[in-house]
Each structure stands twice: as C-alpha cells, then as structure tokens.
Design a protein around this nucleic acid. Structure first.
Lengths: 349, 349
DNA sequence: CTGTAGTGCTAATACGTAATAGCGAAGATT
DNA sequence: AATCTTCGCTATTACGTATTAGCACTACAG
C-alpha cells in the first residue's frame, strides 16, 4: 500500500446538496449563525448530520481568504541563527512568544527562508516581503535592519519589535527592557554599599540597549553624586595596564556589558591578589549570551519571556483593534543582579 | 506620531493597475508563465518592477484555495507542550526540522492553536483542520492520535510522522529510530561483558517505540542464548522487594525505559551495598526527558536532530514529486550507550 | 484584398466560505 | 381586503489567485 495524497474534501456545497438546502444555509449553521439566519433547529440538525456524515472540515484557506486574516503570526530574527536553538540568546524570547500565541489561539510562522546566501536575514528579499504571509510579525534582533523596519512601517505592515528600536522619522511598536532605570538603580545600590567610583565598560558598538544602559548609568551617577567613568571596550582592549589605571583612580566596581570583558577583569585582578567581590564588585549589565558561564555573575535580568509575551499581546491588539489608541512602546522592568559578584566596597586606604 | 498599520497588502490587481495590464498578466509573470502567456520581456519587467515597488507577496489563502503551494511546512505536536521549550523532549527534533527547513527554503508554521481547553492537541478542531495552511506537516508525539492520523491520511494531506507509528489499514510516512536493532545489539554487548541475565523494564504503557525495544531485546536474547525477563513497571512499582527478587534470579543488568525507574533501582541497590556499574549494569533505552539527570546514565542515543531533518526531507520530496515511488518509512540508527553505567558482569557466586 | 499565422494580451471563471440583501409564503393586524 | 410581519430560507457577491478561451491587431502570403 502506498501513501496516497490528494482527495477531494467535501465542501459546504456537498453538504447543502445532501441536506437539500443552499450553501449559505450550511455556512450559517456551521458558523453558528443559525439564529441570525433564522434556520430552524430541525433544518440545522439535518445540516449538522450531513456534515458529520460526509466528514466535513472547513477549508481554512477559503476562510481566511474571506476573512482577510490567517491567524498566523510571524517571527523573524535578523541575526543568522536558528531561532529555536537553545544555545541562542533568543530562545527565551521565543518561548514567551509561543506561550502567548497558544493563549490567544494564533499559529506561528518561523521565517527561516529569509536567509540570503551570505547568512544575512532580511525582510525584503527579491523585493518581496515574505512576512506578508502572516497577519503580523514579531521581529527580534540586536542588529535589526533599520531600513527594513522603516519600510515595513511605511508599508503599514503590523509588527512589534522585541527590544527598543529607534528608527528616524518613524514610530515603531516595540517591547523593551528598562535597562536605564535598572542601571541607575544598580548604581544607587553600589553607592549604598560604599562604592565611590563605579566604572561603566560598554560594547564598542553602541546599540539602543547599550545607550540606554549608559544613560541609566550616568543618571545614577548624577543622582548619587558619583563621577561617571565610561569606557567602550572590546575584549582585547582589556589589558592589565588598563585595569591598573582604573584601580589607581579608585574604582571599586565595574558595570560591564560583556561577559568576556568581566572575565578578563577577573583574571587580571586575581593576578593582583584582588578577590571578587570582596575587593572588587562586578555586575554584568548586558545580554548574557548562553549558559557557558565559567562562574556566576551578578547579572541584570532581562525579562525575556515576558517581553516575548507582551510583544504578541500588543501585536494581536493591534490586529484586532487597529484604531484604538494605545501605547506602542512598552518598557518592562529588569530584575536586579544578585549578590554573586557584588559586595560592599573595601575599606578605603 | 502614531503607528500606522493595516494597509491592505497589495494584490495582483493593484500591480496590474500600476503596470497598466490585467490581473491575469500579473499572475502569469509572477508565476513564471510569461512565456506561455506570451508576455514580452518589456511588459514582464514593468510588472515585476511594480510588484517590487508595492512589496507584493502572494496571498497564501488564495493560493492554497487554488490548490497551489505556499512554501510553508507545518509542525504539530500532539503532546500539550510548548514545542520550543528546551526542557522539552521534542526540542532537538525541532532543531533538526528547522535546520532542514532553512536548507530547503521553506518557512515553518508552529501549530500552537490546536490546543483545546483540556490541553489536548488535536489536528481537527472546531470542525476545521488548521494544518491545511501549510503545504504539508511534520507531526510529533508519542501519544499521537491515531484517528487524527488516519483521517489526515484519508484526506490525502501530506505529512510525515517523527517516530514510527502504526495506523491500522493505513500506510503512514514516518521517520523512526531503530530501537529494535540497537537494543538487540546492546544485549549482545552485555553478553560479551559476561552478563547472563539481562532484564527489560518497560513502560507500563506500550507505545510503538517501547514495543520495538522489547522486540529487539527479545531477539537479542534469542541470538545470545539468554532467557528474556520482561517487566512493565511504573515508577512506584519498583520496590525493594521487586529488586531483591530480580537479583535473586541472577540478573546483573537492567535495560530500563524510564530514568525514574533507573533511579529507583540505583537507590535500592545502593542500600544493598551494590555499586553501579561494578555490581549492576543499567542502561537507559527509553527517551530521556530533559537534562535533569542526577547522574550520567548509559543511554541509547536517539538521533533526534537527524530524524527531524529526514522528516523534512521526506516531506519536501513528497510535495515536490508526489508520484515518484519512494520509501515512506525511514529507520535511522541509534547511537550505542556509553560506559557510564555499563560494565563487565560481576564474578559469579 | 482575402486568408492565415502569430503577437500580446484581456475577459471570464473557479476555488470554498461568509455575509448581505431580499424573496415568497404564511399568518397577524387594520 | 389590503397591508404588515415574521419565517425560512435562497441568490448573489466578494475575497485573491491561476488558468483557459479567445479577441484585436499586425505582418505576411497568396
């Protein structure tokens, strides 16, 4: 026996014929509108029986063609990654997205086909916007392509970006994490712990998120009477000399955006007989990649799951009630770092 | 400024208007049939330009209504789980599926909407078959609903099940793991290690996979001259008494389908001063749930990633060349358990 | 100047469903 | 008797695409 495909499924017209009514009547009964259409119980029953008899199943394509909606939400990541890989930074977002999709009864389209030969993921490929297969989409990615976003917005395609994103001259919907407040509060906490010099060490490349953190850092410094000290460093920029200089200026705490940088600092300070967190506090305030951590760090928690959920909620709201005024930009609070690598400042010399 | 959306996606009619031709001409050009329709290069170019300009993308609903494909593959899991959760048994399958989808340029539809209020996942819900939005689907699940599968097959819907699945009177396409050979080989290996009594402890509920393992066990016993000893146990059925009785009959190795059962055995045998694997060998031959293992076990490896990939490959083959005769049932080899909890049999008393 | 062959399209239709407008018959009201 | 309501539906249309039939025109042969 071979696996067979392609058989004609019964349609409402078939049922109508069997029950001796019109297709419209069948649609009304199946769609639960028999009251409005004044189909009496008896006829409705006859129709239902015929439908069951023939094994009728509504054709979703026809339904969505009529209703202009597919109940499909797209998920698009700009980074060239398998979005569902758990090693991936995005995985936890995905879970939130999926949980909410289940809750609202939408299906998800994972846009995996949008990868071009160079591994780049673009929305517009061959001039076509594949996202259109979904009613709306959730977009993820640090390196989101601004021109893609602007064009999508100009096209009126409904989407929500996960992570704050500024596109000039365009207001786009996003759900972000409130790095700014969280970082400011962290500076406050360190101050309370006696730190007087807190250094911020950021990505060399400045994304929205890192700018938010720096802004929070600066405002935290300001409101706590601390002089800010900002450096933008790649991993290899972190040298023993740099650390010595920092320590010489009295820095006792570092806010670091990259785990690699934190590891370097830990390494060099260990060589100098400094222990963490007793002599030096370090907090990770960037996005921690995977769980490949060689040690626990005090880390600013990104509410990834919730961000995913909120993005879907906002998107579905936008789809179901397009004209209701609402907040298109949502900031969710981060969770504060724990005490792993944060402690009271050492006694001053 | 407000976020504007819900502009109607452009249709072929819009393009036609822009290019000054008829909708049919647009369809012909977009569908690559401009030759047959005798659309000259110049006009075709004009149409393509307009399409690009407007960001046209074919409406999936209309396309499938016409019986055409959308380059969309569905993924449906019968278990009520978030399929992308990494805690999930299915996650690794998903990754394989996604990798292959990327490779062949299809997008994936995660069917999350098919969950009914009781948490059950069914294909046919509310009298509609959501799967139809995808050209074909990959189905996952130990507890796959046979009537759903039979109906899908009867409807001629193209799908591939991940995991061997027997549906009476219907041949279903699937990609499975060759538990049977692997278990038989494992019995052989244990025999070589000197074990003379190897016990099989299976799920109380018998799925295809567990039946395969038992069959392999029995054939392995037969070809190695061992008397089989089979038990179907839930976690709580594993008592100290049961273990004592087993050991009394001379059992020195257990093939266990559930990690929980293995843990019980380990616990009770430790209480009797038996160490694993020196006094007792244990191999896990079932599907290990997550990575919540309290210890490493010698485990039969399921080629999950490859199964996912193969399922997609088979499905796409079925879609692109429906009438080519081919294997619809694919068995992939398992990887043998390592030596964590398997060792030579203790000297006989 | 008619007939024929191509060229470049357009017009029309089908797919299955949902929604809206409305029709004929029966009964109720004036 | 004439009008109005209500009932129980049907007929029609729209959604966007693919496909088929065929029309209007030109070029050329005879």
């Amino acid at each position: 026996m071979a696996v067979r495909h392609r058989r004609q499924a019964p349609t409402q017209a078939d049922i109508a014929r069997a029950a001796g009514v019109s297709q419209g009547a069948v649609s009304a009964v199946i769609g639960g509108r028999s009251a409005e259409q004044r189909i009496p119980r008896e006829t409705a029953q006859r129709i239902m029986d015929a439908a069951r008899e023939l094994g009728y199943v509504a054709n979703t394509a026809a339904r969505s063609l009529k209703g202009k909606r597919n109940r499909l939400l797209g998920v698009h990541t700009f980074e060239s990654v398998f979005p569902i890989s758990q090693r991936d930074f995005y995985h936890e977002f995905l879970i939130g997205i999926e949980e909410q999709a289940v809750a609202v009864g939408y299906d998800l389209v994972l846009f995996t086909s949008t990868e071009d030969p160079t591994g780049q993921r673009r929305v517009y490929r061959d001039g076509a916007n594949r996202l259109n297969v979904a009613d709306g989409s959730v977009l993820l990615g640090i390196g989101s392509n601004n021109s893609d976003l602007a064009r999508l917005a100009a096209d009126g395609y409904p989407f929500v970006h996960v992570g704050r994103r500024d596109v000039p001259d365009t207001e786009i919907a996003w759900v972000g994490a409130d790095y700014s407040s969280a970082t400011a509060e962290l500076v406050g906490r360190l101050t309370t712990l006696g730190h007087r010099q807190v250094s911020y060490v950021g990505y060399a490349e400045r994304y929205e998120a890192s700018r938010d953190r720096e802004a929070g850092y600066r405002s935290g410094c300001a409101s706590n009477g601390i002089t800010p000290g900002v450096a933008y460093l790649e991993q290899d920029d972190v040298t023993a000399q740099w650390l010595d200089r920092s320590l010489a200026t009295g820095v006792t705490a570092f806010l670091v955006e990259r785990q690699e940088v934190a590891m370097r600092i830990a390494e060099y300070s260990a060589a100098r007989g400094l222990s963490i967190p007793d002599d030096l506090s370090i907090a990770l305030i960037g996005a921690s990649g995977g769980s490949s951590a060689s040690r626990r760090w005090s880390t600013l928690g990104i509410p990834r799951n919730q961000m995913g959920r909120e993005a879907v909620r906002l998107l579905v709201d936008m789809l179901t009630a397009p004209d209701v005024p609402r907040e298109f930009q949502i900031l969710l609070p981060c969770t504060a770092p724990d005490d792993s690598t944060i402690a009271a400042a050492p006694p001053r010399r």
